[in-house]
Amino acid sequence: MTPWTFDEWFVVALARTIADREVVFHGFASPCAQVAMHVAKRTHAPDSLLVEGATYAVDPVPVFVPPTSNDLALHRDAVYRMRFEEFFDAACRGAVDRMFLSGGQIDAYGSTNVTGIGPWPHPKIKLGGGGGGGNISASIGTLTVWTTRHRSGRTLVADLDFLTDIGHRTREGTRAELGYTGGGPQWLVTELGAFTYDDEGHAVLRGLWPDVDLADVEGATGFDVRRDLGELALLAPPTEAELAALRAVDPLGVRRSEFADAELARAFP
């Protein structure tokens, strides 16, 4: 078996959250999700419909994944490129099955803050912003939420400084109460482990990476760590096919820009 690094394994786990025959989309500034979609398409989800980030190209075969997501390298030779309007209309009416979302902060219900850290109106750190997430996180079929910064202790928080994108509930109420048409987060994958969501829409820890202890997760998580641990296929070692697909689509290693150096040093088996 070819050795692999943690960043590769993490992207493979994200890819496995995609089912075949799903319409799947990633936002910009999301290299791990971007690479994961192409890994899924080339392995277990050949009939997924992949909408490429900021180019809205349908099922492109990128020359390589560049570090900026509105670039011709991503959509060269795509047979069809949606218009901006066409994609957002599809996402708002519920025709898109899955989107990947991350955030500077993520709460127990999978809502995210990508707007700013610290009190508004003068946040200590103005983050980039949510793109289209404020609407389409409400209406897309289901969400895969991810972060590569769980260990910092500042990412999975009890209370968001600002709620940009919608998880299973906001301060105002649940998805049902707010009338959101989409299903909300299904998975939360972090560099420490993977969570699903219970009937209350609260995250439940389902698996740990092999070099991580429960104490690592509890120490780094700002909300109650509910758990239901067992064998989790999502976190099984990558296959040769998955690694080959990943390495082919991301020769620049753009995915690595999401990780701290210590995480990049994690090597397996």
Binding site: N135, S137, L163, L178
Partner: peptide
């Protein structure tokens, strides 16, 4: 009308 935004802090801005 829009499909989301309701209950987000973007609405408050």
């Amino acid at each position: 009308p829009v499909r989301g935004i309701k209950g987000t802090d973007i609405e408050g801005l």
